[in-house]
Each structure stands twice: as C-alpha cells, then as structure tokens.
C-alpha cells in the first residue's frame, strides 16, 4: 500500500513538477468513520492505545475528557463528534493520537491509525469552495475510491 502511494506520488510529481525539486513531507494517515485523514507527522507526538479518560463536565460533547500522560494532562477530542457524526465506541483498533500543536498538547480519538506516507505538498488540492467540511485544509485522491483529507491542526485548537 505504502509503496503504491510512493510510486504514484513519484509519477505524479514527475509529471507535474519537472523543474521544481520538492522534498516530500511525511504524513500520518488515520481512519475515522470510513474516511481517511492525514496529519503532518511533525505534529504527532505519540500514539497511545492504553488510556483511561476522565470525563470533564459541562464541555461540548466532542471533548471526551482528559487523560494523564506521564503527569501531563491532555484533553481528548473525538474526531467523529467534532465533525458532527456519531460518537466512536472504543474498539480494538481505536486509539489516541497525541498532537503537539504550537506547544499545546491535544489528543484525538480515532477509529484506527493506518500508516505514515510521503506526500508532495504541491499535490494537495484545495477544498471545493462550498464545502462544509470542517477542519480540513486540503484533499488529495489516492485511487478512484480513496481520498485523503488533510486535517488543519491549527483549526483543531480553536
């Protein structure tokens, strides 16, 4: 799968950017409610599967609560609920991706983590103008059926 990505990327980039030499960037892809999302790997702190979430009262429902990560208190967001979908029930594959965005730590609760891919940023297209999709700053198609949505980490914090 990964190789497939890379090959495709290479081909595309060669076709599109013959002159401009561009270094590929690493992205972590994960699944949430059947969609594939990608986040800049530089923002990813760690992935944890063993956690116990403490519920915080009187906050929007997409905030699952807080966890204790080696003495650090980190808020957890359910990506599904943040995108106004049904909340995620914990499964075998579900896990928390801890993101460090502008020195703020935040955890996102996702269905499953897929893998790390190299992507040329120039291949990412902007969202269609009228899209009501939140938190996404761009998209890229992998194959006919599959599309990667790029998550905007800064927006996630707001």
């Amino acid at each position: 799968m990964t190789e497939e990505f890379n090959e495709m990327d290479m081909e595309r980039s060669q076709a599109l950017n013959v002159e401009i030499k561009e270094e590929p960037k690493k992205f972590l892809t994960f699944l949430s409610d059947g969609l594939t999302f990608a986040i800049d790997a530089t923002n990813v702190g760690e992935i944890i599967t063993n956690y116990s979430i403490t519920i915080v009262p009187n906050v929007p429902s997409f905030i699952k609560g807080i966890i204790n990560l080696r003495g650090q208190i980190i808020p957890i967001i359910d990506i599904r609920e943040r995108m106004h979908k049904m909340p995620l029930e914990g499964t075998d594959t579900s896990c928390i991706i801890v993101l460090d965005i502008d020195s703020t730590s935040i955890g996102i609760f996702v269905d499953a983590v897929s893998h790390v891919v190299d992507i040329y940023e120039s291949n990412i297209s902007a969202m269609p103008p009228n899209s009501s999709q939140e938190l996404v700053k761009g998209m890229m198609s992998l194959s006919k059926e599959q599309v990667i949505l790029f998550l905007d980490c800064e927006l996630l914090l707001q």
Binding site: P57, I63, T104
Partner: peptide
C-alpha cells in the same frame, strides 16, 4: 494542576471546576 488551556475556551472555570 491546571486544566489544559484548550478547555478554558469552554468557560470551564465557571462550571465550578
């Protein structure tokens, strides 16, 4: 310990925490 600053945007202090 203070709650994460992310949560303070939701006025968490006002709810008695």
């Amino acid at each position: 310990k203070p709650l994460p600053s992310y949560l303070s945007t939701y006025n968490i202090k006002k709810s008695g925490i």
